[in-house]
Design a protein around this nucleic acid. Structure first.
Lengths: 239, 239
DNA sequence: CGAGTCCTTGAATACACTCAACTGTGGTGG
DNA sequence: CCACCACAGTTGAGTGTATTCAAGGACTCG
């Protein structure tokens, strides 16, 4: 049980090790939990969870990334989260027989670890530290939502674009000698749906920022930021 | 310890009994926790927590209501939550030495129960069911935030106004023979800051809804909704 | 290389915002 | 008890900015 090999159990251990909420567990406990895990793969564009569906499992992203979104009454799609390795969802069903409050769709090929509600519940009672980790994780996620809500309230769209560049810079960037290179997790349309603006508006704003020299659009998946402070100023102080 | 009286401990027990997260505890445990609690009162308009301040305590609203908000870069105030009896905040500081991510201001005279971070942490490890309750509570709060975010993404302001009327109707209303009477927890300006629109815009929209017969503004603190389904339609389907 | 999808650019429109004046309301003090 | 003041809310007019609709350009993937 404690040796590394290619059996399902050990593959599952690798899966668990990636997830922050299990980071406090010792090897033995990891092994126990590993045996409870199921896996499922999804292709890019496939829907992992449908808004409104009943579900009784907690899903952990083991590999790849996914977007969580709600469809608005006026036919748009409001993106709420971009999940990547180690993120989980479905915890809202922990107690009652609740239905999903958003849809989740794979942005890339995704591999998931699945725990049933019952198993997950038992874990929480056996390992209070996991519950605390989850509270910590949820708190962080709420802080992000709160910031997003604040941002949506800002009239000035430039500020909001700056805000999302900052957010992406902290999560999806590498440093180069030309500046910070952001690897966009979403398409332009996706970013627009995350910001809650029209695709075209985002396009115009990014074009404008490029003209002003604040960003350099390397390709559709990468944006280079020569001077991060200028973006911070944009996001913070507005115009 | 288990007898009802007017001593501080027993007053604290009453306080605990109001809070859903402690609802699973037996009398003895309630007594133990009661001895850990401190109290503090706030006048209407007083700030209970300042955004950015360091704080090491979890605050539970025992009586009254309060708004949680962030100031936006463009000088507005974006309301995130309306807390009332039994709600708590400060749990984001559970683990690290974090600072507050929003301000909280009393909307009415408020009485709070205060637990220090250390005490609260111990509770979580001693009573896993409290942790589970908190996860449940946070999940609910996240669902609300997610819905709010979705709502903010909707262009049509009528829809958003309808949405907030529905939300208030579920939390702050009484049934009368004329329809559903909503007791507004916020002023017009507050509602506007909750929706992320200008005060004047909200005023116009409410006036319009009143002309159409969908609502009746009884006074600045109460709105009567004769036909709730019409509001649901407004919030759901847009125009 | 071609088809489809995603992205950009342009022009016109609509909608909420801003600024400003006015009305109502609640509270204080003479 | 009424006059006054401060504040919250409403209403009006004009402006700005993002949206919409439409067309053209540029990727990406087979």
């Amino acid at each position: 049980m404690t040796e590394t090999c290619n059996c399902n159990n050990c593959r599952n251990e690798l899966c668990i090790r990636k997830v922050p909420i299990f980071s406090t567990l010792n090897q033995e406990d990891v092994g126990k939990i590993a045996s409870l895990i199921n896996h499922r793969d999804y292709k890019k564009g496939e829907t992992i969870l449908f808004d409104g569906d009943y579900t009784d499992s907690v899903v952990i992203i083991n590999e790849g990334s996914a977007k969580a979104y709600k469809n608005t009454p006026d036919g748009r799609e409001q993106i709420l989260y971009v999940f990547s390795e180690g993120d989980f969802f479905g915890e809202q069903n922990l107690l009652g027989n609740k239905t999903a409050t958003f849809s989740v769709e794979a942005l890339q090929p995704v591999n998931t670890c699945i725990l049933s509600r019952g198993q997950f519940q038992k874990l929480l009672y056996s390992y209070p530290e996991i519950a605390v980790k989850i509270i910590e994780e949820l708190s962080g996620r709420m802080a992000r939502l709160e910031t997003a809500l604040q941002s949506m309230g800002v009239r000035n769209v430039d500020t909001r674009v700056g805000g999302i560049l900052l957010e992406f810079a902290t999560k999806y960037s590498t440093k180069t000698n030309e500046g910070t290179l952001i690897h966009l997790p979403l398409s332009r349309e996706g970013i627009a749906n995350y910001l809650g603006v029209a695709r075209e508006t985002l396009s115009r704003k990014l074009g404008q920022l490029e003209n002003e020299g604040l960003i350099r659009s390397v390709n559709n998946k990468e944006i280079l930021i020569p001077n991060m402070q200028a973006i911070e100023l944009l996001a913070g102080a507005g115009y």
